[in-house]
Amino acid sequence: MSLAEKISDLDTFLTYSVVLEEEAADRHDELADMMEVHNNPEVAATFRKLAHYSRLHAREIRDRSSGRSLRVIAPWDFEWEGMEGPETGDISDVNYLMSTGHALKIAMGNEQRAHDFYFEISKGSPDPAVRALAAEFAEEEKEHLELLEKWLEKHPESDEDMRWDPDPAHMPE
């Protein structure tokens, strides 16, 4: 049974959606923190902004869930396709010298996976209400993608920076 088939009621779907967005927001914040600590304020600001959008989206979903009871699911019991939620960026994909353009490309990957997640459900869930809402969310993720694409046009930086580090690592302890 595919995940889309298992998400057969609105409460489960909303639970997945809220966690997807909140985890993405937390990860974006975490990546922003990393960049701040490593003196890459531009990329930090980008991740912070992305965190803000994810959080807005999460809040919107929470608002729509008011009056419903979200499910309590342990983090490891979510049946995501990957190791974490589809919109959660992989920690190992970042580098302290990365450019805004690179950060945006990562974000686009996240949004694409989120879109695909919602899209699959909009096709495969047995519950019409779930399918409808998932289609709506998929559409929103698509809009995010388009926004990111425009944003990216302003940041044509290459990633060469992160492959050439003029400063060797040092010994803090």
Partner: peptide, 20 residues
């Protein structure tokens, strides 16, 4: 406190796993 770990370090995930 924000960790001093390098961006991309696996230790962030250990911190997340512990807190979860």
């Amino acid at each position: 406190l924000k960790p001093v770990w390098c961006p991309g370090c696996g230790d962030f995930a250990v911190l997340n796993a512990i807190t979860k």
